[in-house]
Amino acid sequence: MVAGLRYFTDRSDDGAAGAPLLDTVNGEELMHVQPAVSIVLSNHPPESPGTLYISTKQVIWLSDTERTKGYAVDFLSVSLHAVSRDPEAFTSPCIYTQIDTGDEDDESENSDSESNETFDLSKITEMRLVPSDPNQLDALFEVFCECAELNPEPVEEDEPEEHNWIFSADQLGPAMGIIDGVDQEWDSSQTHFTTIGHPNGDHDLARNVLELQINDQRFEDAEEMESNNRNGGQQ
């Protein structure tokens, strides 16, 4: 997946301005089509006429006149969307969106590139969609909401439950997994600690035995003298 805005040229061949080719194999579906929409990227001049296609995965705007002109952004990269109606902020009522480019310092670079004729789509952090019929704005907003909810973060969204700190106890051992209350948890960890203390005592014992076996001359002598018997006894 590409973060931010990108060019989109995959159209069907029927008609002058073909519909976008969607990733239907992976379940992408067209949710809404809005004709007569112009698009404004950051502070660039509006581009029109065009048609807005909203799918379960992305927002696509395609020019009605130039087959090679089109933009798309995944819902995963749409940080925020809103209905903007104040003429002071923008001349026409529109759907205002903020786009996550995945770039931390895009703000300053974005303003630099705004005067250029050609611009870098990956730096665009704002997109306005202006339908010629402002009465459609609320419906569009709702479609945006619906589709945004269809696109949770791929990795983290299902995991927070798994990440709850209590679950780390499961990894300590099966005994911790079946704990029901706080008191039992304490009991069990105390037992756990006693068993940790236990091996400490054994450890010295084990070390002594080891030293005996390795360093004690008498053992070597004994081994040499009655090797067959000893080996047979140990194994």
Binding site: L80, A82, V83, S84, D86, A89, A148, E157
Partner: peptide, 25 residues
């Protein structure tokens, strides 16, 4: 009924009355 807290830094958001914010941001 939204308003931007730092309006000088984000003047364009003044006009927004209702908005949807992606949980991950």
């Amino acid at each position: 009924n939204t308003r931007v807290v730092d309006q000088e830094k984000f003047p364009h958001m003044l006009s927004v009355r209702n908005c949807f914010i992606r949980g991950s941001v």
